[in-house]
Design a protein around this nucleic acid. Sequence first.
RNA 1: GCAGGUGUAAUCUAGUGGUCAGGAUUUUAGCCUUCCAAGCUAAUUACCCGGGUUCGAAUCCCGGCACCUGCACCA
Length: 569
Amino acid sequence: MKEFNAGDVLSLCKRRGFIYPAYEIYGGIAGLYDYGPLGTQMKTNLINLWRSIYVLSEGFIEIDSDIIGPEIVFKASGHAENFQDLMVTCNQCQESFRADHLAKDLHPNPGALSKKDLQALLREKNVICPLCKGDLSDVEEFNLMFKTKIGPGNGRVGYLRPETAQGIFVNYPNLYRYAREQLPFGAVQIGRAYRNEISPRQGVIRLREFNQMEAELFIDPANKSWPRFKLIRDVKVRLVPNTDEKEVEMTFGEAVDNGVIKHETIAYFVWVTQSFLIRAGVDPKRLRFRQHLRSEMAHYAADCWDAEALLSYGWTEIVGVADRGAWDLTRHIQYSQADLSAFKRFDHPKEVERQAFKPKYGLLGPEFKARSAKVGMALEAADVSLLKDGRVEIDVDGEMMTIPEKYFDVVLVKEKINGEKVIPHVIEPSHGLDRIMFTCLEHAYSCDDENYVRMGLTTAAAPIKVGVFPLMAKDDLDKRAMEIDQMLRERGIATYFDDSGTIGRRYARMDEVGTPLCITVDYQVFEDGTVTIRDRDTSRQVRVPEEGLADVVEKLLKGIKFDQLIGKV
RNA sequence: GCAGGUGUAAUCUAGUGGUCAGGAUUUUAGCCUUCCAAGCUAAUUACCCGGGUUCGAAUCCCGGCACCUGCACCA
C-alpha cells in the first residue's frame, strides 16, 4: 500500500470521469467543479441511498424549492447580516478584522453604520492595527451570498440560497398541513446552494456552488425523546465532546444517559448519519462525531455534532447534526407575520376561569359605527389588567383607542382550552454531498507498490455495478457476453461491456473505478453453461450458471458475502 | 484577500534563450492472446492566458487565471 494524497485521487477522478474542473477550456474558476459521467452516477447513487433512509425508512417528506430567494428571506434567516461583514486588513501584518469591532468604543452602534460612514469614522479617529500598530486597508465588504436581481430594471434584490434549509422553513405552513398538523414531522431537500467563498481550496471540499442534502425535523420542544432510540441504544459511536475535546467510544445509550449528547433525538440522528455514511463508503475507522465548541456553536443552537472524516487534508466536516431550537421559525414569524406554530392538543382539555371584558354591543354600535365590531373583538381579547381609572386603552387595527367602562362589563368566563400553540424545535442533519462523495472516493482509494489502483467503493455507491466481458472477442463469446450484459441492464443493474485488449487490462480498468463485480464469459460456457463472477477486492472467482445469474448478482450487490456464495453455487 | 511555491498531452513527467519539445501510462485501430495492466505495429493529443524584452521566448520579465502550502474567513 503506497502513500497517496488528495491530488492523486483528484487526478484519477479527472482521468476516469468522476470530477472535472469547471470551465477548464477557459482557464477554470476556483470553487467550481463539474461531475463527469461516473461522478454523476455515483452522486445519484448516494442521493438515492440517503433518500431511501430519510424518506422511506424515517418517513420524512421531500420537497424541491427555489434556489433564488428575495432579500427578506435571508434577512429573516440571519444570512444577510452574517454574510456581509465589513472587514479591514492590516497593511503590515495582514491580519483581518471586523471593521465594526474596531469601532466599538467610537460609536454607540457601529454595526449599524454604512461602509462609507464606518470608513470615515475609522480614518477620522486614526484607528490602527490593534496587533502591530500598522496602517489599515479601506473597509471592504465580504458578501458571501451571491446577489442578483429578480425581474427587469431595478427589480427586487434576490440572493442565491446559501443553504437549502430556508426553503423548508418558509414552506412550514404547507408542510405542517401536509403532515396533518402533527408533531413530529420531518422534511428533506436535496439541491444546490451557493456561497461566494473568499478562498475555495482543497478540491471539492470548499466549493462556491455545492450540493446539500438537508433534513429538518420539527419536534415538540417539551419532548425531545425519540421512540426508535431504544433500538440503537447499544450501537457504538466515536465522539469528541466539547468538554475535554478527547475522543471516546461509547454507546448511544451511554452518551445520552451521561449527558454527552443532549437528548435522544439528536443522538438518534447522529446514528442515522453514521449508518448512512458507512453504507455510502466512509471508512468507520476514519469517522468520528465532534461536538461544536461553545464558541463555534450558533447562539441559538442547543447542541451540535459534526460528522468528521479523516482525509489527507485532515479531519473534515462532512455532516452537521444540530438542534436549532425555535430560532428559524421564530425569525420567520417576526419577518413574515405568518403563523408558524404547531397546535399541541392536551390529552384532557383544561377548564379555565378568567376575568374578561364583555362588550356591550348595543352601545358600541351607535358610538363606533362601522368599527364597533372590531372594537368589540379587541375588547374581548384584551386582558382585564388594562382597566385603569374606569377606562381601558386598546389597540384597534394599529390605533390606540380609549374605551370608557360604560361600553363593557367585566365578567367571569369559563373557557375550555384544548391545547396550546408551540413553536416547534428543529433538529437539522445537514449533509455536504460533495464532501461525502469525495470522502467515499478517498477512503476507497488504494494503490499498491506496482501502482495498481483499486477503488473499494461500496456496492451502493459504485457507479458501475458489473463489468461484463467475453474472454475473447471471438467464437461467439462476445455475442454470449452481450446477451448477459443486456439481460442485466434490463434488470436495472448498471453494467459496462468491454471486449477490448486483454482480460487483465479490463479487470484493472474496472478496479480503478470501483466496480465491485466482473462477469467473464469463457469457453466453458459452451460445455456447462456457466460463467465466472470475479470479486473486486480479492480477485477471486466463482463459476455460476448463466441461468439465475441476475439473482446471484443482485444478492451480491445487496451485501451477501462472496465467501457465502461459493458454498451456495 | 495576503505571503510563498507551481503551471509541458487525458494522467505522471524530461527538457534547453536557437531544428514548433522527449519519455511513460492511457486512448483508438490492427496483429497476437483460452482469466488479472504481457508483447509487436501504427495513430491522436501538450509548452495555462495576455503583454513585454529579444533577430528569436515553452524557457527571462510583468500582469491575469488556475492549483498547492500557510495566514485570515468558515453564520
